[in-house]
């Protein structure tokens, strides 16, 4: 991690020093342990505040949307795929961004760490190789990285950036080793009633803060369907019908676009596993269209194109 941080700083210093970009979008150390904060470095003096840790769990591609300046963005595998997606969808101009690619070791989930250390106040986390050393007053625990990775990172299929102008480390194994098919498997084995039940249980504690939407780089509509007010499309109450409408539609809007970056789950204050929905859709898109989102700037996303030999009748 330390090496990645050093290389990110070096690259940022060079890019800003030579005036190649107006800012470098990366992360800086959070104000409390186990957090990192998105950070825009605009001058070479600020680059030493940049860092790379397992807690860089947001998706910086989100903060690229709508910018008109030249930005260098720090991106691991999934985030680089979202940048590709934004280029495909005309939201980002390739020539305006410099991608500082980070071969990814998998991001960490602070809730998993807290759950392993009940009642303990974590002060420091050191990530070295396959282990993470967590310490605080009166304790020090060495935990294998794989035990405390975010769920999506254990089944990641593309850990190396798919586009990058600079790479800050040697390429890592392309996949994380987990079985991606297993994520959607429970849903597939359920009948409709059981699915509905599982779906409602998944979202029963949702407070509709919309963090999942707001953290996601796919969600850039000027007016989100839940915010449409003239006329209003979606109820605002905590009734299951209103909450579920939001989640079903959000998931469908991600079809063929979601990179399984996990930013939505990381952002949720209630720890809701909304990837249960998007993973099933991701799998369907992969199986039905042979398509993985965000792999190729020139590919046509399946939900945006029509082919004359489409097997479905309704499009003819």
């Amino acid at each position: 991690m330390q090496e990645r941080t050093q290389k990110i700083r070096e690259t940022a210093r060079e890019l800003l020093g030579q005036g190649k970009v107006d800012c470098v979008l990366g992360y800086t150390q959070g104000s409390i342990p186990m957090r990192a904060r998105p950070f825009f470095a605009t001058t070479p003096d600020e680059v030493d505040q940049l860092c790379w840790t397992g807690f860089c769990t947001g998706n910086l591609a989100k903060l690229l949307i709508g910018r008109t300046d030249r930005v260098a963005i720090v991106a691991q595998g999934c985030v680089s795929r979202n940048i590709v997606g934004l280029i495909q969808e005309g939201q980002v101009v390739r020539d305006h961004v410099v991608v500082i690619g980070v071969p990814c070791l998998g991001m960490l989930e602070y809730r998993k760490i807290e759950a392993r250390l009940p009642g303990k106040d974590v002060h420091e986390v050191l990530e070295v190789g396959d282990n993470v050393t967590v310490s605080g007053p009166g304790f020090e625990e060495v935990i294998p990285r794989n035990f405390i990775k975010r769920d999506n990172c254990t089944t990641c299929m593309h850990r190396n950036p798919v586009i990058s102008d600079v790479l800050v480390a040697e390429a890592v194994d392309e996949t994380a080793g987990g079985d991606l098919e297993k994520v959607a498997a429970p849903w597939e084995s359920f009948d409709a009633a059981k699915r509905w039940e599982a779906f409602n249980a998944t979202f029963s504690t949702c407070i509709r803060c919309y963090s999942c939407r707001d953290a996601c780089p796919l969600c850039y509509c000027h007016v989100c369907f839940v915010d449409e007010s003239q006329p209003q499309w979606c109820g605002k109450t905590q009734d299951a019908a209103d909450v579920d409408t939001f989640h079903i539609l959000r998931a469908f809007h991600c079809a063929g676009r979601c990179t399984d970056c996990g930013a939505c789950e990381s952002a949720c204050p209630m720890g809701i596993k909304m990837r249960r929905m998007t993973s099933k859709i991701e799998k369907d898109v992969r199986k039905l269209y042979g398509y993985e989102p965000g792999m190729d700037v020139n590919a046509k996303p399946p939900m945006t194109v029509f082919q004359p030999n489409d097997p479905e009748d309704f499009v003819k």
Binding site: P38, F40, C209, S211, D214, A215, A267
Partner: peptide
């Protein structure tokens, strides 16, 4: 405000 997502958390 630079990095705020305007989520309501």
């Amino acid at each position: 405000a630079a990095s705020c997502l305007n989520c309501g958390t």
